[in-house]
């Protein structure tokens, strides 16, 4: 048995000639928030649909809680909650009634399960309101309530912030972080918005054109995207010698066109510049820079990440 809460092995889905998901291997540990990041049409939803058993893989395997989903669906899915794309509800019913349907079918006997779930997402103040009168954001929150009502160990959320306003997005983020921290719920969340994933996820899987390009922890990602001080100088060799000699700086990189990136002594650009000038080095540019995470993903997928 593997240690992963969720693992896919060479998961592939083809539609005739088109490969929507191409041999992806996802690894999600217990208590982690895993962000599946990719542009629209990258294969995120198809992947999550396969994980939830709504779409059959062409080849490959999916294991949840160490068990193959095709053979153990009845044991696995009661421990999973999900929102796949826009959550659907019966418009002629109230939120309470919609959740009652799901609670009955899930075999939840706790009477407070529905009110608890509604209160967690802030939908408990208008019990008589029909879902037909709900905004998209409210439906999204109701979807979350439906997904967490049975206290799942694994939560799969496909673009859950779609339709939410900025405050709603922030509330959702805090809610998911709390859920992960308090109840040790493992969460897989997909999005095409990098900033959203960055603020939530412990690990990011970048998916592009059906391929999982990289799985990277947020820590590693940030390490790769450190801030730096960039000088453009007339004599690079002399400049780096001065950096080592005068300031003991060894954390730097020499780039083309006389550029030197210094990853330490940030905020001391004045003193560094003074030493360069005093030693007859012409400084034509000083810049405090930061490789944004977005740039990293743009490089990785060769295009824009967010729309």
């Amino acid at each position: 048995m593997s240690n992963w809460v969720l693992e896919t092995k060479a998961l592939t889905r083809k539609y005739k000639e088109q490969t929507a998901v191409d041999a992806i291997n996802i690894h999600v540990s217990k208590g982690q928030i895993y962000g599946l990041l990719g542009r629209n049409g990258a294969g995120k939803t198809t992947t999550l649909r396969m994980i939830m058993g709504l779409v059959k893989p062409t080849t490959g395997e999916i294991e949840i809680f160490g068990q193959n989903i095709q053979e153990n669906a009845k044991q696995i899915y009661p421990r999973v909650g999900s929102i796949i794309e826009i959550p659907g509800f019966y418009e002629n019913l109230t939120a309470n009634e919609n959740l009652e349907i799901l609670a009955r079918l899930r075999g939840i006997h706790r009477r407070d399960a529905v009110p608890y779930a509604l209160s967690r997402v802030g939908l408990d103040d208008e019990p008589g309101k029909l879902v037909a009168q709900y905004s998209l954001g409210m439906k999204q929150r109701l979807g979350i309530a439906a997904a967490i009502m049975h206290e799942p160990e694994l939560l799969i959320l496909d673009e859950p912030t779609n339709g939410l306003d900025p405050i709603g997005i922030q509330e959702m983020r805090n809610f998911l972080l709390d859920l992960c921290e308090e109840k040790q719920v493992t969460i897989i969340i997909s999005s095409h918005i990098l900033s959203e994933i960055e603020q939530l996820a412990d690990i990011i899987g970048v998916i592009h054109e059906g391929k999982l390009l990289e799985e990277i922890t947020i820590g590693e990602l940030r390490k790769r995207n450190r801030r730096y001080l960039e000088f453009q100088v007339s004599n690079q060799n002399k400049a780096v010698l001065l950096l080592e000699e005068y300031f003991n700086i060894i954390d730097y990189e020499v780039h083309e066109k006389g550029n030197i990136r210094i990853y330490s002594h940030l905020g001391e650009e004045g003193q560094l510049n003074k030493v360069f000038v005093e030693n007859d080095i012409e400084v034509s540019k000083i810049m405090m820079s930061e490789d944004r995470l977005e740039d990293y993903f743009v490089k990785l997928i060769g295009g824009r990440v967010s729309d």
Partner: peptide, 17 residues
């Protein structure tokens, strides 16, 4: 048909029912 148009089928089938 309403289970398709109201997008509710996926909720039910992932319970699983």
């Amino acid at each position: 048909n309403r289970e398709y148009t109201e997008n509710t089928l996926k909720n039910l089938l992932t319970i699983p029912v």
